[in-house]
Design a protein around this nucleic acid. Structure first.
Lengths: 138, 138
DNA sequence: GTGATTGCAAATCTTTTGCACTAAA
DNA sequence: TTTAGTGCAAAAGATTTGCAATCAC
């Protein structure tokens, strides 16, 4: 899969997220965008980046992923202890989690209807509702 | 809160879970039961156990918590990277997660109605559906 | 007895941090 | 220039593992 987006796209998205478009951030964002919507760990991104000739230390990958997440460019998904997945799909949606494979798959928001959620305690607001459907082999 | 259950209760529950009722497992389960339904980390249980005079290394706490979870005596809840909560409530229910405090609170199953979940892929079965409502300060 | 379990220490893995160096504005 | 970001190495946590000693059945 080739990334057809112009180089400036990553730059514009970084600026919009309030992040200075440095070389490594632009490169990492391009690597992320090049693969379409998916879920990947810091380590996986590190590997993909290296494969794409972008040689950045893992610590910088973590920094970038966290900054991207804060800036709304990514969404962090936690389904298993000791590992974070970063989701390039930032729209409203939920997840299947395949326990045996450690793999996530999106569920479009329309396919899940949540009703009658209790209201948040006083002074609190709901920042997000995560639904994770865990599936195993039958 | 005092634990009114007879000592054999913990033993019986361990046996039912297929676990040999060793001294430390019985003691740890009693510490867990003594506090009513709650969510705690391995480290918190370690602290509580010590306070109760049950001096068990943290590694054994982890082993026991994982065994209890496999045996259905506890439920593991993952909401934040790098920390697992163990829930003494194993019934069907969901959670509020107070992001600023790192605290969980149960939401009774009846208060959340899930509809129109997509069916699991062929050969797979849904093992659990977790709903986490994340709340922040307004 | 004998096979499962514990205790302990060390190892592992993921993620974060401190700081001198470099690059963006 | 001036301030933010990177690279690297080291630290920090959480959790797991290996193995001899110990306990439950």
């Amino acid at each position: 899969m080739t990334d057809e987006r112009p180089y400036t796209s990553a730059i514009a998205r970084l600026k919009a997220a309030g992040l200075r478009p440095t070389r490594q951030r632009v490169q990492l964002l391009r690597v992320l965008e090049a693969g379409g919507h998916r879920h990947l760990t810091a380590d996986e991104l590190h590997g993909e980046a290296r494969a794409a000739g972008v040689d950045v230390p893992l610590a910088t990958i973590y920094n970038a992923l966290n900054q991207f997440t804060r800036g709304g460019l990514l969404r962090e998904v936690v389904v298993e202890p000791g590992r974070s997945y970063f989701d390039t799909n930032t729209g409203e949606h939920h997840h299947f989690y395949f326990e045996s494979e450690g793999r996530l798959q999106d569920i479009p928001a329309e396919q899940v209807s949540l009703a009658a959620l209790p209201s948040a305690p006083a002074g609190m607001r709901v920042s997000r509702v995560d639904v994770v459907v865990r599936v195993t082999e039958k």
